[in-house]
């Protein structure tokens, strides 16, 4: 099977280049990652991240024939030859298919991806009704592979400011959590013009997500919450006035 792979080693190369490989596959080689490991047997200088080999750890995300995806869950039979493999777009390349995810995780961290609850911890767990739990379906499954954010043109052109689909979906995941108490703070956090509102519904994120999630919709729902918050503020303000009058 023929491959064309993006190569760059800062120790040796001034510029990245594409290298062709022709590799003989064996029975049982079904996924792209299997083929990549065969190539690594031939040429151990090819660097890539990988770990669980079953689409759970999110390590081996890369640009496969122009589309971001996980090598371990991409079937070889679905790919046109030569298979063109490049690192995920828009992030600095450390080496070959390995990109520097620092910026991605900084954005992720900036939305405070953890429960904020100021009540004293109860004896047991903080409980949640099955209905409230169901609201997190389609949000919590994210494996942070970065395929969505690095396929988003808004992120390509504004990597410093735009949080990106992965981070924003996690922001919504905690807004939607019945146990979280920091809604106002979370919405305020995203109000700067370029953090949330750079999303133009291009939907590349939904197109590539290996977990079939919909960050685009989550972002739209954050805007809904903004409306609700404004309405509540107004109600509260009214109550304030009424109390004063009383």
């Amino acid at each position: 099977m023929k491959f064309s792979i993006y190569r760059f080693n800062p120790d040796v190369d001034k510029k990245p280049y594409m290298q062709d490989y022709d590799v003989v596959l064996e029975d049982g080689d079904q996924m792209l990652l299997d083929a990549l490991l065969r190539i690594k047997d031939l040429d151990d200088s090819l660097s890539l991240r990988k770990s669980c080999r079953e689409g759970v750890c999110g390590s081996d995300s890369m640009n496969i024939n122009g589309k971001n995806g996980l090598a371990c869950v991409t079937k070889l039979s679905d790919l046109d030859e030569p298979v063109v493999l490049r690192p995920m777009p828009g992030l600095p390349v450390i080496r070959d298919l390995v990109v520097d995810m620092t910026q991605f995780f900084e954005h992720y961290n900036s939305v405070k991806p953890y429960l904020i609850n100021h009540d004293a911890p109860p004896e047991t767990e903080r409980l949640q009704s099955p209905e409230d739990r169901a609201k997190l379906d389609g949000l919590y499954e994210c494996i942070l592979c970065g395929a969505c954010t690095t396929s988003c043109p808004s992120f390509w052109w504004n990597p410093e400011t735009f949080v990106g689909p992965a981070g924003l979906m996690q922001a919504y995941r905690f807004m939607a959590d019945s146990r979280d108490q920091a809604m106002d703070e979370r919405l305020e956090n995203l109000e700067a013009p370029d953090r949330l509102y750079r999303c133009h519904n291009i939907m590349n994120c939904v197109d590539v997500c290996p977990k079939k999630l919909n960050p685009s919709l989550a972002i739209a729902k954050i805007k809904d919450l903004k409306f609700e918050q404004a309405r509540e503020h107004k109600c509260n303000a009214k109550k304030h006035i009424e109390i004063k009058v009383l």
């Binding site: 700067a192 013009p193 509102y197 805007k223 903004k226 409306f227 404004a230 309405r231």
Partner: peptide, 17 residues
């Protein structure tokens, strides 16, 4: 409610809206 979102307090929302 919409009017309030068009104030300077919500720069991102204002532009979007």
């Amino acid at each position: 409610m919409v009017i309030e979102l068009l104030t300077k307090r919500y720069p991102g929302m204002r532009a979007w809206l």
